[in-house]
Design a protein around this nucleic acid. Structure first.
Length: 120
DNA sequence: TAACTGACTCGGC
DNA sequence: AGCCGAGCCAGTT
């Protein structure tokens, strides 16, 4: 993870802020994918950076619901980055999102696409 | 400085 | 239907 450099990516408008801004708009009880966010930002090929930005979301001032962001198949690929591998699942279940075998049940139903929801 | 890695995704075989 | 390789951006080694 990035050390505290002189210029904090948090205060600086960057790709991170955009990702976090979108992630913060994810409705409760819904989830989205890294690719969906990347696509909304216009960099669909860089879905990796979205996930990487999520890793940096811990330093985001307004907390970012990173637990609502999963990979394209609804797999909780980033659960290990929540301290304990149960944290992400617990948070999702708290929002009435069922998790089965580290996957989001009814992923299609709870899926929230920023490119469609926010471009209205 | 160059090479590797990663909370991803898509297309080809 | 499942496995493999390529592209992406930034930070780390």
């Amino acid at each position: 993870m990035p050390k505290q450099h002189l210029k904090d990516p948090v205060n600086k408008h960057s790709f991170f802020e955009d990702v976090w801004d979108v992630a913060r708009q994810i409705p409760k009880g819904r989830v989205t994918s890294y690719g969906a966010i990347a696509n909304y930002l216009g960099t669909k090929m860089s879905a990796r950076m979205v996930g990487w930005a999520m890793g940096a979301s811990v330093q985001a001032k307004p907390k970012v619901p990173a637990h609502r962001v999963v990979n394209r198949v609804g797999l909780l690929s980033g659960k290990i980055h929540f301290g304990t591998h149960d944290e992400m699942q617990k948070r999702l279940e708290k929002e009435k999102i069922k998790i089965e075998n580290d996957k989001v049940v009814d992923f299609v139903k709870v899926f929230w696409d920023p490119a469609k929801e926010l471009s209205l």
